[in-house]
Design a protein around this nucleic acid. Sequence first.
DNA 1: CCCGACTGTTCCGTTTACGGAACGGAAGCG
DNA 2: CGCTTCCGTTCCGTAAACGGAACAGTCGGG
Lengths: 173, 173
Amino acid sequence: MDPAVVGRRVRALREEQGISLSTLARLAGVGKATLSGLEHGTRNPTLETLWAVTAQLGVPFTALLAEPAAEPTVHGTAVTATLLEVFTDTDATYELYRMRVAPGVTQLSPAHAPGVTEHVTVFAGVLRTGPADAPLTAPAGGHLRWVSDVPHSYAAVGDEEVAASLLLRYPRR
Amino acid sequence: MDPAVVGRRVRALREEQGISLSTLARLAGVGKATLSGLEHGTRNPTLETLWAVTAQLGVPFTALLAEPAAEPTVHGTAVTATLLEVFTDTDATYELYRMRVAPGVTQLSPAHAPGVTEHVTVFAGVLRTGPADAPLTAPAGGHLRWVSDVPHSYAAVGDEEVAASLLLRYPRR
DNA sequence: CCCGACTGTTCCGTTTACGGAACGGAAGCG
DNA sequence: CGCTTCCGTTCCGTAAACGGAACAGTCGGG
């Protein structure tokens, strides 16, 4: 893997918080040269250095290393979904996705097996989704839930891309 | 964090696979001295070294780091949560966790910053959570949401462990 | 036995990541 | 215009992480 990726991640996180390189270096107890080289990917940081920096950023290690590329991703006309986790329980199997819905397009999805339900939590944007003949709308922070054994649709309301988490529940037959 | 913890984890993973230190070092392309020191916690490994070893073990980086996020969320006796993803957009930063709540114990969590909200979707079991003075209850498939700028509690109802996804929303200041 | 092949640890020279200091550049202020 | 105070990068001596080799210990076979 590429240390440059980690570096870019650190720089992005730092700038999100509006902290300067100098202050972050001081707070984390590392040299400015160290942090500079780390962000540029020209150094090969030690565990101790990474730990100090991520701790000061208030970010768990995983935030630096989450690699979506290897994860299975489903692309549709409007929807891009990446599978985060599969969870199996005595009653049902669950699939948790992160979903993005591009604006301006409506995507239709065929019916799933009987009893399958979908649960959506919207992060950003406004999402219209649900049974194709009676979709529901949820703004950022909202939550929707419907039985998806009928054809259903996904669409972003307005021109902002929608980000959401999608939980699919498949009851055990 | 303690490099000795990482070392023990690597050794445990290696022995699980029945691979000797020598062969793992050779396969990963690192020196035996390096791997030996890493497993003993007497060295401060670089990102490159950790990467090579974990890749050869077929283990994601996160497997080495038992305790991902002590920061924004406080986890303790009843709740164990693992961070799945961090998502930042113009209005807020989101953290998506998979959460497990052990039965028989109630865990209290201190108030977060003003405006922080929590969204929970229950996979399995029955969860009672929300503001400590007025918790809500959700069965499998249910969804809860509350503003977490007050102390709040988590508890499993009944004797079944609860599995859920937890979305934390931090509004941008 | 004794040998070969293996285990994991330790020694050691080379490479390099480390922090402190010095650097040029960009604001903000009198 | 100076002067100060930040910013991020570069230079550099030191500390240490690196891989290769040598080490003792263990097992199995001839």
